[in-house]
Amino acid sequence: MMRLFSLSIGILLIGVLMNIVFNHYFQPVGLKINWMLIFMLLLTFRHSSISLSFLGVFAGIILDALSHGYIGLYGISFFVTLLLARQLIKLFYANTFFALSLAVSVMTILEGWISLSILSMLETELNQSSLMLTSTLPLAVLHGLVTPFILQSVIWGEKHFIGDTA
């Protein structure tokens, strides 16, 4: 458990770095991939630990700080998304690349919807449906496409840091 938590922190920090540095140079169709969310979702799908949901709050608050928006916005959306992801994994077996890509895409849409819903509560004239169509849905597809590569790195990390328990 402690090893998993240490691994999660390490992966989260890599996600933060990728969000800061990598997104500055790599923005397919003008969208910034949310690496932190992908990492946290994959870890939740693979380990289904409640501590990952709380670590997601921390990840969300880091993203709030990096986005210069409302503090707590992504903290809440990450937490709810990871809690639901934890329940979702109990309903069906998702340990193949395709199934995990699909699951990450679906959860990205959910996270986008939650964060935009909170934003639209704070800013009344926000066009939520338009942002869902132009931003969240293409981002979900992108997340689905990069998930297999991220999954490979997560599996590699698990083999080296958790060993046989992975």
Binding site: N19, I20, N23, H24, L31, K32, N34, L63, L66, S67, H68, G69, Y74, S115, L116, L119, L131, S135, T136, L139
Partner: peptide, 11 residues
């Protein structure tokens, strides 16, 4: 020297 890390803000 930088920009917001998410897709919902233009900073």
């Amino acid at each position: 020297i930088g920009e917001s890390a998410d897709n919902n803000h233009q900073i």
